Simulated assay, not measured.
Amino acid sequence: MVVLPLGLWTLSALVCGYFIVQAESGNRGLEAKRALKIKAYALNQELAAVKADRAVWEHRVGLLKSDQIDRDLLEERARIVLGRVHANDVVIIDP
């Protein structure tokens, strides 16, 4: 008389325990949610850095495309592309 209800209570407690453990540490559990939030935050930081870099490059390209070309930027790009330096420039070679 006591064994059947005790067995059912034990079985239901085990099933509930299983679901509680899976809710915490399963593939779609709370730990996975925390890990995904951390990854999303890191990706958002990287996206913000890339957007800032893109804005800088868009500004520089805009200076080269306008009717009045920025002479300093043009000279800088020409030196980089041609590999030339001015006689008064100091060149530091970084290994």
Rank of each mutant, 00 (worst) to 15 (best):
Met1Ile: 03
Val2Ala: 01
Val2Asn: 05
Leu4Ile: 09
Pro5His: 05
Leu8Met: 01
Leu8Glu: 04
Trp9Glu: 02
Leu11Pro: 00
Leu11Thr: 02
Ser12Ala: 11
Leu14Gln: 03
Cys16Asn: 07
Cys16Leu: 10
Cys16Ser: 12
Gly17Phe: 00
Tyr18Arg: 07
Tyr18Gly: 00
Tyr18Ser: 02
Ile20Trp: 03
Gln22Gly: 09
Gly26Asp: 01
Gly26Trp: 03
Leu30Gly: 08
Ala32Arg: 06
Ala32Trp: 00
Lys33Gly: 10
Arg34Phe: 04
Ala35Arg: 07
Ile38His: 11
Ala40Lys: 13
Ala40Val: 14
Ala40Thr: 12
Asn44Phe: 03
Asn44Arg: 11
Gln45Cys: 10
Gln45Ala: 15
Glu46Thr: 00
Glu46Ile: 00
Ala49Arg: 14
Val50Phe: 10
Lys51Ile: 12
Lys51His: 08
Ala52Asn: 12
Arg54Phe: 11
Ala55Met: 13
Ala55His: 08
Ala55Gln: 12
Ala55Pro: 03
Val56Pro: 07
Trp57Asn: 12
Glu58Gln: 04
His59Val: 04
His59Asp: 14
Arg60Gly: 07
Arg60Pro: 01
Arg60Ser: 11
Gly62Asp: 02
Gly62Leu: 00
Gly62Phe: 01
Leu63His: 07
Leu64Ala: 15
Ser66Pro: 01
Asp70Val: 02
Asp70Arg: 03
Asp70Pro: 00
Asp72Gln: 15
Asp72Gly: 15
Asp72Tyr: 14
Asp72Val: 15
Leu73Asp: 06
Leu74Gly: 00
Leu74Phe: 06
Leu74Pro: 01
Glu75Leu: 14
Arg79Ser: 02
Arg79Trp: 05
Ile80Leu: 15
His86Cys: 15
His86Asp: 15
Ala87His: 10
Ala87Tyr: 09
Asp89Ser: 15
Asp89Leu: 12
Asp89Pro: 07
Asp89Ala: 15
Ile93Ser: 11
Asp94Pro: 01
Asp94Trp: 02
